[in-house]
Every structure is written in C-alpha cells, then in structure tokens.
C-alpha cells in the first residue's frame, strides 16, 4: 500500500494493486451492511446447496407422530414438524434449493435477454430500436399476473413453467434500462475512436459496449432475483407452482396455513426465509452499485 517513489511531502495514495476489480471490491468492503448481507446470503446459498448433506431428514419423509398435529420444536426436530409429519428444518433447507434455483435461473435468463435486446436497440437505433421499444411498451402494459395465471392454468405446474413465465415478464423493464445505458455510452469518445479506426459494428458492440454494461448487469441481477423468488413463492403458495410433495418456500406456507392458530411457525419460518433472502439480495445489489459506480447515486 505504501509509496515506492513518492515525491517529497506528497503521500502516495494509489494502492499497489489498483485494478478496476480491486477498487470495486475495496469499495464494497467499506459498506459494512452490504458485507453483512453478503455473508448471510452466502450462508443461505450454501445451506440450500448443501441441503442433501446437512438436512437431518428426507424432506418428504413422514413421521407418524406428527401426522395431523404439528410437533413443536424439539431435540429431534429442531423446528418441529409440519401438519403432515415432515421435518420442517429439512423442508426449509430443501425448499430453498427450488426457490433459489428458480429465482436465480429465471433472473439470469431474463437479464441476459434484456442486455442483448436493450443493448441492440440502443446501439442500432432507428427502426429496430423503435420496434423493440414498442414491444417493451406493450409487454409493460400487459397485466402480467393475470397472464401468468392464464399460462400456469394452461400449462401443467412445473419448475420450468414457472421459470418461463418469470422470464417472459422479467426482461422488458431491464431492457429499457440497458438501452438507455448503451445510448449514453454510444456517444463516448472511446466508441467514437473505435468507429473512426474502422472497427466493425459487431466488434464495437461485443468488445467495447458489452464490457461496460456487464457490471450493471450484476447489480440488476442481484436486485431482480428477489422479485423472481417472489413470483415463484406466490405461485407455489397458490398451488400453481412447483407441484407437491417437492418442498418450496411458497408451498410450505400453503401447507402451514391450516395450522396457523396452533403452529404459527409453520408459516413464519418459510416466510422469514423469503424475506431474509430478499433483503440480503437487495442490500448486496445496492452495495455493488455503490461500489461499481461511486459517483452516481440512485438509478
């Protein structure tokens, strides 16, 4: 960190490894809340990933003693059992796998489409831009939840169907964001330089524009995953998502609802898991945005 050949009286402040990524990382670490959220998020992701190893029981195994009356937390069942006599902790860990996998996959696909479509619209401009943006307008005036209901009523409930509907309505808004980002990048000098050097449009888009948009992609990814998890859990709660007996956080709330008077934790545990995940993703996303682009605040 210290200066090697500083002028007398002037303290050298540029750190030894001042790469762009290093700077982002340092600025991220400076935000204690975002770091804390990142650690919690990592723990959530790991516990979901390792569910087959760390879950005490098979999430679909029925213990007769809990059948019909949920057991309270005990030594044997740390979070008790649900109304069908299944271990709640195991279901919580396994349920996170589906909810997180669906949320992360769907958001990643939706945002990749958004970058390509929005980026191309902003980069190419003209008629293509017009058509794409009208399509985005159209998608944004569709009552998405009702169409999602229609789709899942027509298709059979499955994780793939859920991912499909999330992607379908997940790309238009970010596409608009990336378009405006590309529009402002396009007028920058380095693009002009590349153009005047005779670089083909494809190369400018792939080599010069996309790398500048990618950090934004990471930020939007972590900010849009909670929404995707929301859609998944909501559909599962309605019984229109991932079919039983596979546990997901949403269907666990559905299963717990009849027992909310005697065993409110059946609803509370998966509910809190969804909330904690959402808060953490949001905090990490905001932290990353701040770290990547410290000058510009708020969108």
């Amino acid at each position: 960190m210290q200066a090697q050949a500083a002028l007398p009286g002037i303290k050298e402040t540029i750190p030894a490894q001042h790469t762009w990524l290093g700077g982002v990382w340092r600025r991220f670490l400076r935000q204690r809340l975002a770091v804390l959220a990142g650690v919690v998020l990592l723990a959530i992701l790991l516990s979901a990933l390792l569910a087959p190893v760390i879950a005490p029981y098979d999430p679909e195994k029925i213990f007769p003693e809990g059948l019909g009356n949920p057991l309270p937390p005990s030594d044997k069942f740390w979070l008790g059992t649900d109304g069908r006599g299944r271990d709640l902790l195991s279901r919580l860990l396994w349920g996170g796998r589906i909810s997180l996998a669906v949320g992360i996959t769907a958001s990643t696909i939706a945002l990749s489409i958004a970058v390509l479509v929005g980026g191309l619209a902003g980069f190419l401009g003209g008629r293509i831009d017009y058509i794409i943006m009208r399509l985005v307008d159209l998608m944004m005036s569709v009552p998405s939840f009702f169409v999602i209901l229609l789709l899942v009523a027509l298709l059979n409930p499955s994780p793939l169907a859920v991912i499909f509907v999330i992607v379908l309505f997940g790309w238009p808004y970010p596409a608009r964001v990336f378009r405006s980002e590309v529009l402002s990048l396009r007028r920058r000098d380095f693009i002009l330089a590349a153009q005047s050097l005779g670089a083909p449009a494809r190369m400018i888009f792939v080599r010069h524009l996309l790398p500048h948009v990618l950090p934004l992609l990471v930020v939007y990814l972590s900010l849009s995953i909670p929404g995707a998890i929301f859609t998944e859990t909501t559909l599962s709660y309605l019984g229109l998502g991932v079919p039983p007996p596979t546990p997901t956080w949403g269907s666990m709330v559905l299963d717990g609802q009849p027992y909310y008077r005697v065993a409110p934790w059946l609803v509370l545990c998966p509910g809190l898991a969804i909330m904690l995940t959402g808060v953490c993703f949001n905090l990490v996303g905001n932290g990353l945005r701040e770290a990547i682009d410290p000058v510009r605040k708020e969108r």
Binding site: L33, P226, F230, T233, T234, Y237, G250, V253, Q257, Y260, R261, P264, V267, L268, P270, G271, I274, M275, L276, T277, G278, V279, N282, L283
Partner: peptide
C-alpha cells in the same frame, strides 16, 4: 435514515401472503 431504509427493505421483501397471514394471526386471531 439507515434504519428506515432497512425496515423499508424488509417490508417490501416480505411476500404479501406471508404478511397478510401474520396480520391475521396477530390482529385477527
């Protein structure tokens, strides 16, 4: 400011059906 921000994040991060059931349990039941 930070506290309000976090509470805000928490309230929008809790799904409506969970929050609704919570209110049913506390204020209704």
């Amino acid at each position: 400011g930070q506290a309000v921000n976090i509470v805000g994040l928490m309230t929008i991060s809790i799904p409506a059906f969970v929050f609704g059931l919570l209110l049913i349990y506390v204020l209704g039941y």
